[in-house]
Amino acid sequence: MPRPEHYLSIDAANPRHVERALADLRDGLSQWRLALALARLDLRNRYRGSVLGPLWMSLSTLIMLIGLGLLYGTLFKLDLANYLPHLAVSLIIWQWMSTCITEACSTLIGAEGVIRQMRLPYTLHALRIAFRNSLVAAHSLPIILLVFLVFGHVPGPEGFLAIFGLLLIGINMLAGGLLLGMMCARFRDIPSLVGNVVQLAFFASPILWKPELLGDAMVWMALNPFYALLETVRGPLVEGGGPLLAWVAAVFYTTVHVVLAGLLFARFRSRIAFWV
């Protein structure tokens, strides 16, 4: 039986934090089939009994996009052919990131029942959240395609760079799932705080508006990690590459995020079962 339980050796005087955190990561990633099955189960249960079911995931994005597109396109007096491709990509990537952040708060709290009954790698729970939200986002991808088709927007070969952007966001999701998952399990005020930050970040990031509107002040946008990550996908798909500064910032933020999550996870992994 390929379970990681064959041999257990714990010495409180020599906790081997890093080694065991890495083992957790390895075991969790190798159980991706379970994480995917749980993610699909979550979505199926969420839309249980609904007639349109998972179609709602695409539909709500479309409704939001048309509504916001018409409203802000008129308010800012923007050319829709130019504005809608920007809004479509920004909005869908933002929804992907933001739901993942808010749900990351319950990565571990939500898995309490399982954590206390079975020995499983904690990485598995973070992977489940990342998969779940990625599946939701995947339902909105056709909308990007639709908007590009309608407005005849064709990304150049630099569009493939978006793959690296998606990869960066994926790494951040896993790191965030563990980091926020742990912090929220220990300090129960953090989920509410995160909710507020995410809400504010939606307006502070160039999603409804285009970063060019800032003029010279645009360099300051690099201080916003959401902007940096958004730009690694939106840049290649809409802007023909995206500014170098955004890419550098995105890689920098991702590194900091991963290191921070890794350090805290290594240090406090063994306490999680007592926190949830």
Binding site: E5, L8, A273
Partner: peptide
């Protein structure tokens, strides 16, 4: 013994596959 709670003190060594 199942590896769910980790001891804060002492040592625990389990050899063999566990069914819980």
């Amino acid at each position: 013994l199942a590896g769910i709670y980790e001891p804060v003190g002492g040592r625990l060594t389990v050899d063999g596959e566990i069914g819980c």
